[in-house]
């Protein structure tokens, strides 16, 4: 799941100079993830991993890093 998420994020949402050195704890919001990106991300996760993410949980705390996104998804599996 993590790899699939990572490749989606880097292909569609944020453009970092070096993906290989970007760790699961690096800040995606600083790297340019914006509101449109978050909307795409939420729709992608719900469709791909079959979870429903509550509206009130769509916030930076759950989205800031790849690791946080992964654990957010896990909580709803």
């Amino acid at each position: 799941m993590h790899d699939e998420l990572k490749s989606f994020v880097f292909r569609e949402l944020v453009h970092v100079l070096d993906e290989t050195s970007f760790s699961g704890d690096d800040d995606l919001l600083e790297a340019g993830l914006d509101s449109m990106g978050i909307m795409r991300l939420v729709l992608f996760i719900e469709e791909r991993f079959g979870v429903t993410l509550p509206d009130e949980e769509i916030e930076p705390d759950n989205i800031q890093t790849l690791n946080r996104i992964s654990s957010w998804i896990e909580r709803h599996r």
Partner: peptide, 28 residues
Amino acid sequence: TLSPKKLVAWFDEVAITSWYTVPSILGF
């Protein structure tokens, strides 16, 4: 702008009457 529900709550709290913006954020 990254938390749609908090954004709505902010509009309520500040009692915004008018907003000129782009459709994508309104759609969100």
